[in-house]
Design a protein around this nucleic acid. Structure first.
Length: 496
RNA sequence: CGGGAAGUAGUUCAGCCCGGUAGAAUAUCUGGUUUGGGACCAGGGGGUCGCAGGUUCGAAUCCUGUCUUCCCGACCA
């Protein structure tokens, strides 16, 4: 089974705690290739649930799944100047197509005669290959809109990597849409942001701020980038999803025009939007504690685990006459339930292990419970437990799962609120930002000012909120650095 | 990519300074006793010491290169 060593407490070393948790909770591990991770079955089960929930929501918006190739001709990337600038430094390049036996007899080497005429780039994102394809799909306004999404892997050659948070290869979905009008594209980019926000809040139980990125933080090639920003337990910000209004940049670069109702050629309007396995990092750093992972029930691969406590096989057989019907009933109610009858570990070990894995509800039944028609029920989010009657237990469990889902969200929201405050002077800002959290400040809207603040404090504008945060009003003011006018406060934080 | 640290059994680590052919804990396997918060006893198996060169009669140990991980920095839609 798992290891016995306790996790490093969060208060001692937050990133060490994170690294240990990811490995010990069996979510992922390092691979032989630098910066690339192996996502283990338990971690992948969570990702699959994320995928299912999002995929359903995308399809409700009329989006269809497709698949575009991993490799992109090098020339495509240079078609959009800003775009290539954003990614050029972190692209993996395929230069050859054949290996051969080493003439010196030491395994295989790259065949120097197999150099590619045009080098291929492993996709860092797929805008270019998709727009070169959309060109062939679009000729009339009747062909629009095109709403496609793909679930795939991408590669960005990151210098410093961390499991889930920043890996060289990661899994994500990227949606790419083409529209006839600017308004429709803008609206769609925002609509997908709302899909992400709804998903984050209600499924992942992560409170997020919906906002617009400042020019410095905008996606390369976009006219506007929308985002959802979340606060982690260490007070740092993590971008949980983005949606871009790409204008006509890619349509012009790839010459994608359509004939309008008025019989005129026009360039199409584009959006793209994505979330990645980084969400796994957000999930971990929002809810988990020093005992291990804490999963909101909606994403837990096992929502309820039942641990029989027994001495002999006969005792187990007796207990199972009550446990099995309960497990069956829960399963028919759509609850993901596991009964752990293994004799490999003692109950105490199992308790600790399921806590490490973040199972929301744990039931334990021993001989005493059997006599009394009771069961011990423990919840992961509060680490509390009580012994209750078996009568009506199924409905209580269902209600408890809902309650845990709510509580995970409420705790995370309380934390964010407690660590969000206004800040009016730059002197104060420099001190406050060291404590972490979100600082709501006035900013003059210039990249220069943002750059200055970043260089001096490492803090960046996480977003310009689209709506006032709970408890705050949108009011004009003056920039904390330059004193120039500011329409409203923006969110500053140190970011992952 | 720059600075620092590290890589030895599945895992955590000792051994390295001062070269002589590898050890602990834990996990794993077997048998038994156990089981309401990380059980105990006994026995067994498991490592080309990250990889590649070099020095040497002999290298986990010394030298060179390289790969990977962690921390700090730069970078990061």
């Amino acid at each position: 089974m798992a290891n016995f060593q306790k996790l490093t407490p969060r208060s001692e070393d937050y990133s060490k705690w994170y690294n240990e948790l990811v490995v010990k909770a069996d979510l992922a591990e390092q691979s032989a290739v630098r910066g690339c991770m192996v996502i283990k079955p338990y971690g992948y089960a969570i990702w699959e649930t994320i995928q299912q929930e999002l995929d359903r929501r995308f399809k409700q918006q009329g989006v269809k799944n497709a698949y575009f190739p991993l490799l992109i001709p090098k020339s495509f990337l240079s078609r959009e100047a800003e775009h290539v600038e954003g990614f050029a430094k972190e692209c993996a390049v395929v230069t050859h197509h054949r290996l051969m036996n080493d003439p010196n007899g030491k395994g295989v080497v790259v065949d120097p005669n197999a150099r590619l005429e045009e080098e291929l780039i492993i996709r860092p994102t797929s805008e270019t290959i998709i727009w070169s394809t959309y060109k062939n799909w679009i000729s009339s306004y009747r062909d629009l809109p095109i709403l496609c999404n793909q679930w795939c892997n991408v590669m960005r050659w990151e210098m410093r990597t961390r499991l889930f948070l920043r890996t060289a290869e990661f899994l994500w979905q990227e949606g790419h849409t083409a529209h006839a009008t600017k308004e429709e594209a803008e609206e769609f980019a925002q609509r997908m942001l709302n899909v992400y926000a709804d998903f984050a809040e209600n499924v992942m139980a992560i409170p997020v701020i919906k906002g617009v990125k400042s020019p410095n933080e905008r996606f390369a090639g976009a006219l506007n980038t929308y985002c959802i920003e979340a606060m982690m337990q260490d007070g740092k910000a993590l971008q949980a999803g983005t949606s871009h209004f790409l204008g006509q940049n890619f349509a012009k670069s790839f010459d994608v025009q359509f004939l309008s109702k008025e019989n005129k050629y026009e360039y199409v309007w584009a959006t793209s939007w994505g979330v990645s396995t980084r969400l796994m990092g957000a999930l971990i750093m929002t809810h988990s504690d020093d005992n291990g992972l804490v999963l909101p029930p909606a994403l837990a691969p096992i929502q309820v685990v039942i641990v029989p406590i027994f001495k002999k096989q006969e005792d187990l057989d007796v207990l199972m006459t009550r446990i099995q019907p309960l497990a069956d009933k829960l399963a028919t109610m759509g609850i993901r339930v596991k009964v752990d009858t293994s004799e490999k570990a003692t109950p105490g070990f199992k308790f600790a292990d399921y806590e490490l894995k973040g199972v929301p509800v744990r039931l334990a039944m021993g001989g005493r419970d059997f006599e009394n028609n009771t069961i011990e029920i423990a919840r992961r989010d509060t680490l509390t437990k009580e012994t209750i009657s078996l009568d009506g237990i199924e409905e209580k469990i269902k209600a408890l799962l809902d309650e845990i889902q709510q509580n995970c969200h409420r705790k995370a929201l309380d934390y964010r609120i407690a660590n969000t405050r206004e800040c009016n002077s730059y002197e104060e800002f420099k001190e406050e930002i060291k404590k972490g959290g979100f600082l709501l400040c006035h900013w003059d809207g210039t990249p220069e000012t943002e750059e200055l603040i970043k260089n001096e404090t490492k803090a960046t504008i996480r977003c310009i909120p689209m709506e006032a945060l709970p408890g705050y009003k949108e009011e004009p003011g003056v920039c904390m650095v330059t004193g120039k006018p500011s329409a409203k406060r923006v969110v500053f934080a140190i970011a992952y």
